[in-house]
């Protein structure tokens, strides 16, 4: 299945909902990572997180561009001219930057979620999605190496680092489960072979992240997922994030920048 213009309506909408969630998550986590540029714990780490921020925003552009082909507005319109309730990201990515521990934990949970999702989508029945997923998956290799290395070190390096990492995990985990909140139209997407069920992705993800976290002496909290992002229900942090993000674009001073 590759012809965009001929995708029947209920499916077009359903595929759009998936892409929207993916694109919004990438652009917001990229924004949060970029808040470290110039402020990271050591120069070399500053440089690495800046690359990761760029990669994530690059992925967002890719997903927004696919959406555009399905009839949605262009990527900048999507990122800069929607309000919080129109965003479909899991709440994990909108939480404030926090300390380096929270950044590392959030990025780790997100990177592995992205990995299992991309690997599943590489087999998607919709060819443009399968091809894009394969491309993005290659860039994730570095992210996975980077996040895993930080988790392995900070989890049990010192008393302070352990405490900070555990607190970060306690905060992030239920929001991270929200990455697997099914976007509307899941049944149709699964039936058409666009994606496997979110529950299946979550199981694969847990199988990957749990052993790494446990090996770093971190305890995975017992917590219910925080859902709502896929329906446009967000924490108050998204509004302030978007106020920053959209400040100049919405200033009315110009059309092109």
């Amino acid at each position: 299945m590759g012809n965009l213009s001929r995708m029947p309506e209920p499916l077009r909408e359903a595929v759009g909902n998936l892409l929207l969630a993916m694109a919004d998550e990438e652009v917001l986590i990229g924004h949060r990572d970029s808040e470290w540029v110039g402020h990271a714990p050591i120069l070399e780490a500053d440089i690495a997180i800046a690359s990761i921020a760029q990669d994530e925003i690059g992925h967002a552009i890719l997903w927004y561009s696919l959406l555009q082909e399905l009839g949605w507005p262009d990527p900048d319109r999507m990122a800069y001219f929607r309000d919080p309730p129109e965003f479909r990201n899991a709440t994990l990515v909108e939480l404030p930057r926090g300390d380096w521990a929270f950044t590392v934990v959030r990025q780790f949970l997100f990177d592995f979620a992205e990995k299992v999702r991309l690997e599943a989508l590489m087999g998607s029945a919709w060819t443009p999605l399968a091809e894009a997923a394969a491309k993005v998956r290659r860039e994730e290799t570095y992210h996975l190496m980077h996040s895993r290395a930080w988790i392995a070190r900070l989890g049990d390096a010192t008393e302070e680092s352990h405490q900070r990492m555990q607190a970060a995990l306690d905060l992030a985990w239920p929001h991270a489960l929200g990455l697997f909140e099914p976007a509307p139209g899941e049944a149709l997407r699964v039936a058409e072979g666009i994606q496997p069920p979110e529950a299946e992705l979550r199981a694969r993800w847990e199988a990957e992240v749990r052993p790494i976290l446990e090996a770093a002496s971190l305890v995975i909290p017992q917590a219910e997922p925080i859902y709502g992002g896929r329906a446009g229900r967000h924490t108050e942090h998204l509004a302030s994030l978007l106020a920053d993000f959209q400040l100049v674009a919405r200033s009315g001073l110009g059309e092109t920048w």
Partner: peptide
């Protein structure tokens, strides 16, 4: 100005 860059492209360029 990274958080406020007015387009996705300008944001990427400025981070880089």
């Amino acid at each position: 100005w990274i958080p406020h860059a007015p387009t996705l492209r300008r944001k990427l360029i400025l981070i880089a």
